[in-house]
Amino acid sequence: MNRKKFMGVMLLAGCVTVAMATLGWSGEDERWEHERGERGEHGVLPVTSGVEPVMNKTYKAECSACHFAYPAGLLPERSWVKIMNNLDDHFGDNASLNKETRETIENYLRGHAADHIPNRFSRSILRSVDENQTPMRITETGYFVHKHREIPARMVADNPQVKSFSNCLACHSSATHGSFDEHGVRIPGFGRWED
């Protein structure tokens, strides 16, 4: 390892330590305590694991024309059931499908929903949702709100290149591969985002 690279790694490690320490001080982060613990288990840099990327072709083809094909693991099964049974009023749009296509997509989403996928993001999302509630949007979940709480409207809703928090791919350029890592975020017109 050359000297420059070594210094870079040291600097990064330093930043991560400071970032983790900051997280440790912040009381409002307690609900997501387990996440830090998991990072600790690995003993090194935070693992850049994401959610399971979308693998179902029918889901991709039918749903991703209008919006990003959200990974199934970002909502609990009960949410997908509710969404897939209200396609004639899909957030104000008619997104009806024929019976066979609808069933194919619903089965895929249910089988890969947050309650069935053992990964960090899915568990964080599940824990942030009240058991008696059925969120219809990923953006409504406590985890999502928490993770995006510092992003001002001018970067998303008022940014013509982004428009909405529904537009994951505008800023999370590796979202298609299931990676929502903060370090990969580039907000169009604003550049990198790291808090």
Binding site: A65, C66, H67, F68, F91, K163, S164, S166, N167, A170
Partner: peptide, 10 residues
């Protein structure tokens, strides 16, 4: 283009 609500690239 881009979807009027979601901003998704079309």
């Amino acid at each position: 283009g881009s979807h009027i609500k979601t901003g998704k690239r079309i």
